[in-house]
């Protein structure tokens, strides 16, 4: 193959090899997260066969749903080269507001919550895009504001859904293939995002910003509007995550389920092949990133790692997986 190429065009002989290397790297980026998830699953299955037979996969999928939603939102923001540290706080605030609103508003409540959280995300985006402030610092600030808002609205206690709880709880209790609908909602959202990124002008524009923002501006990409969109998508995803939290737990509290999802969600986005410096994202592999993140604690207890060591294992696994799946080249600058 390479011989014929060199015969045909000796002066461009290096090009196909380079292109093949690039394709190889892309292929690994695309399947790396899947391979790692399956490899870990196989190891767990060999060590504890009962885990897979006893519905272990369904447990992983169910517990990964909020992480996956937040990771998808985060990957949209990471893709434009920013970061959203406030999305988990938005999800929690959304869950608390939903618990409060389900009684009076019934079926309208989830829609209102989605609108509100999308608006929160959009405000983040507007500030980043129009004031040109670093998103890390800005969303760290809004994280504090959203946290305080959850504390104040919940009165520092657990807010239980008073009535109409079945509107959202059915999402968790009914399922397809034994896996709750909440997970499938997240998967559908991932597919929609994939279509957006792959086939639309908007998606290509978002990735263009992440690859080189100045170039995107000069190419008449509407960078500001698209940045706002990326953050709004993150807020929207956080809103769905809030709904999932209520569906799963039936209640929300500032310290309960969902209060520590920020870092696992970022880890899931990165394990799913999203570049932290922007310009590379694949929502479909983020699904496996989230599954991997959800698998680590479940798997480590399944194979008998003592509970005290779990956070250590978690840390090591995150570093190792990102080190394995990351794309790097010799001259690149890593911050």
């Amino acid at each position: 193959m390479s011989a014929t190429v060199t015969e045909a065009s000796p002066e461009t002989g290096a090009a196909p090899r380079a292109r093949r290397a690039v394709i190889g790297r892309h292929a690994w980026q695309a399947i790396g997260p899947i391979v790692i998830f399956i490899a870990m699953l196989v190891v767990v299955a060999i060590l504890t066969p009962a885990f897979i037979g006893g519905g272990g996969l369904a447990i992983i999928a169910a517990s990964s749903a909020p992480i996956l939603l937040l990771a998808l939102g985060q990957s949209m923001v990471l893709n434009v080269g920013s970061i959203d540290l406030s999305n988990a706080a938005i999800a929690l605030l959304g869950a608390i507001l939903l618990a409060l609103a389900l009684g009076p508003l019934a079926a309208g409540a989830p829609i209102v919550i989605l609108l509100v959280t999308t608006l929160f995300g959009a405000v983040n985006g507007l500030l980043v895009a129009y004031f040109q402030v670093p998103s890390f610092a800005l969303t760290l600030g809004t994280l504090g504001i959203f946290q305080a808002a959850s504390l104040v609205t919940s009165g520092r206690t657990t807010v239980y859904v008073s009535n109409n709880g079945q509107i959202v709880s059915t999402l968790y209790q009914s399922g397809i293939a034994n896996v709750p609908i909440t997970f499938w909602i997240a998967v559908v959202f991932a597919v929609l995002l994939w279509i957006l990124m792959r086939y639309t002008r908007i998606g290509r524009g978002l990735t263009a910003i992440g690859k080189n923002e100045s170039a995107a501006i000069f190419s008449a990409v509407r960078t500001r509007a698209l940045k706002v969109l990326a953050f709004a998508l993150s807020g929207f995803a956080a809103g769905i995550a809030g709904i999932v939290i209520i569906a799963q737990a039936g209640s929300a509290s500032p310290t309960g389920l969902g209060s520590d999802l920020l870092l696992p969600a970022i880890a899931a986005a990165l394990i799913g092949g999203t570049s932290i410096s922007g310009g590379v994202v694949n929502p479909l592999t983020v699904i496996f990133g989230a599954l991997t993140v959800a698998l680590v604690p479940i798997a480590s207890s399944a194979i008998g790692i003592p509970t005290q060591a779990q956070s250590l294992v978690y840390g090591v696994v995150i570093i190792a997986i990102v080190a394995l799946t990351m794309s790097r080249n010799k001259s690149s600058i890593v911050k």
């Binding site: 970022i266 956070s311 250590l312 294992v313 995150i318 570093i319 990102v322 990351m326 890593v334 911050k335």
Partner: peptide, 20 residues
């Protein structure tokens, strides 16, 4: 060449785990 964000995020858990 792993971004410092990830390395130190992982090391956060490692440190906590070590202490635990």
């Amino acid at each position: 060449k792993v971004p410092s964000f990830i390395v130190t995020l992982g090391m956060w858990y490692v440190g906590l785990g070590f202490a635990t």
